[in-house]
Design a binder for these strands. Structure first.
Length: 468
DNA sequence: TCGTGAGTAAACAATA
DNA sequence: ATATTGTTTACTCACG
């Protein structure tokens, strides 16, 4: 399964609008496995799901856990309908991508081996080692003694982006981190200092001028500098165990360089190799992806619902409804923009989020204040662009010669080197291949979604057709 | 070895 | 007066 497939699969999961309430879990599972086997014959994902579906299967433990025991026991998704209300002000890109679902408070009673890693492998003699072991997928709710594999800038970024208005006071940033990463509840107090230090020093973060009459107590609100947002996204994508990362891992099983194309004379850049210290086993990886796909729908959360600083329950129906509306909008934007927006390409970490003084981003039109540049209250078009970017690594191949300026995108100025292999493939043949793969992806996604109790448009159509 | 990013600690000023 | 917030400096460590 290619990277693009995974991303689209993930995208489709996020798009799933309704739930199939008529079908039993067993039959759904069977259907899923059959469909996946056809769609991705011999794929590891198919195998993993196969193991998940067979309660008494002979799959090894590594494959069974934790999906079969935790997530699917929690497959409960309230049927939601699309409302007329178009307000989506509290949505952030993370919620729209559902990426935060993966690090929301969740079940903590499974994944024994992870817990063991937590208990055993982190003690070096009398010294407590908070570094997360490289071979265990990180779960912030389980590995409460492991330091999150996210940098402070990523944590802050997630916190701010997870807020309804994409701006938070320091106090709420602390809270968000504490809520989502219990590790910090017992961590040495210096981490707050580090957060503040990061806010001050990292130019990705900006203070928002207080509105008159606004009483948020001491201090200012902090937001993400939109010019650097793509860089933070890129940094987050490179983070191990991020859902996106997992999908990318799955998509790139060989440690060979993969290239994608960027417009306007840029050379194809290798995707970041994912076989560093945090490499995990293929089986585990597949399982994580499947886990992620389920988590993406927020189905595995058993803990207390997370709330925004405005008190909004992220798990509430109204929130989900608005989320789905946003996703529909996102889908439209995705189609519209997929061939027009360059993606963020950075080769060095400093391009992701940097303390250095070089400000590439200010080339564009300057704004007098953050508020002018960053439309907190309205639906964020830029968000859609980034989602498109994140989900469509390959789609720019046809746009190599395009010249599309985008002030929110940093592209590394390198020479354009066409991949000779790709040049050999005619556009028509490629289209055919893409269509074929797209078909398979949709089938696989349908099956997966149905297993999770979610009915997609296409499966709904199929179902109707078969009934009639 | 060197440059850079990241984390940590600390000092200090400003502010609610 | 106190706690919190924001800024700055210095240092260490890891990594390429």
């Amino acid at each position: 399964m290619r990277e693009n497939d995974c991303l689209q699969l993930m995208h489709l999961v996020a798009m799933a609008p309704t739930r199939n309430s008529d079908e039993s879990d067993a039959s759904m599972r069977e259907r899923l496995v059959n469909s996946l086997s056809q769609s991705f014959p011999g794929s590891a994902l198919s195998k993993a799901l196969s193991c998940m579906s067979a309660e008494d299967s002979e799959c090894d433990d590594d494959m069974k856990d934790p999906l079969s025991s935790s997530c699917f026991a929690e497959l409960r998704l309230d049927k939601v309908d699309i409302e007329d209300d178009d307000e989506l002000t509290s949505l952030s890109w993370l919620q729209d991508n559902d990426l935060l679902k993966n690090i929301k408070p969740s079940d903590v009673d499974d994944d024994d081996d992870s817990q063991k890693e937590n208990d055993n492998n982190h003690r070096d003699g009398n010294h407590f080692n908070p570094t997360h072991p490289p071979h265990v997928p990180y779960n912030p709710q389980k590995h409460i003694h492991s330091k999150p594999p996210y940098s402070f800038s990523c944590l802050i970024f997630m916190a701010v982006e997870d807020s309804p208005h994409k701006k938070l006071p320091v106090k709420d940033i602390y809270s968000w981190i504490l809520n989502h990463f219990p590790y910090f509840q017992n961590a040495p107090t210096g981490w707050k200092n580090s957060v503040r230090h990061n806010l001050s020093l990292n130019k990705c973060f900006k203070k928002v001028d207080k509105d008159r009459g606004q009483s948020i107590g001491k201090g200012s609100l902090w937001c993400i500098d939109p010019d650097y947002r793509p860089n933070l996204l890129q940094a987050l994508r490179k983070t191990p165990y991020h859902p996106y990362h997992q999908l990318q891992m799955l998509a790139n099983p060989q440690p060979t360089q993969q290239y994608h194309y960027v417009p306007n004379g840029m050379r194809p850049m290798p995707l970041t190799p994912r076989f560093g210290p945090n490499t995990i086993s293929p089986h585990r990886d597949i399982q994580d992806v499947a886990h992620t796909l389920v988590s993406l729908k927020g189905l595995g959360n058993r803990g207390s619902p997370a709330r925004s600083s405005d008190g909004e329950d992220y798990a509430s129906n109204s929130y989900r409804m608005r989320l789905k509306r946003k996703q529909m909008q996102l889908k439209t934007d995705f189609v519209k923009r997929r061939h027009t927006e360059p993606i963020v390409v950075t080769e060095v970490p400093s391009d992701d989020h940097t303390y250095s003084l070089t400000n590439f981003a200010n080339i564009g039109s300057p704004a007098s204040s953050i508020d002018e540049e960053y439309d907190f209250g309205e639906e964020d078009d830029n968000f859609s662009e980034e989602c498109s970017d994140m989900s469509d690594w390959d789609s720019d191949m046809d746009e190599v010669d395009g010249d599309i300026p985008n002030k929110h995108t940093k592209v590394t100025p390198h020479k354009n080197i066409h991949n000779s292999n790709m040049a050999k493939i005619t556009s028509r043949k490629r289209k055919e291949m893409e269509e074929e793969e797209q078909k398979k992806i949709v089938e696989g996604a349908d099956a997966l979604l149905n297993l999770a109790g979610i009915m997609t448009n296409s499966s709904s159509l199929k179902s109707n057709r078969s009934h009639s």
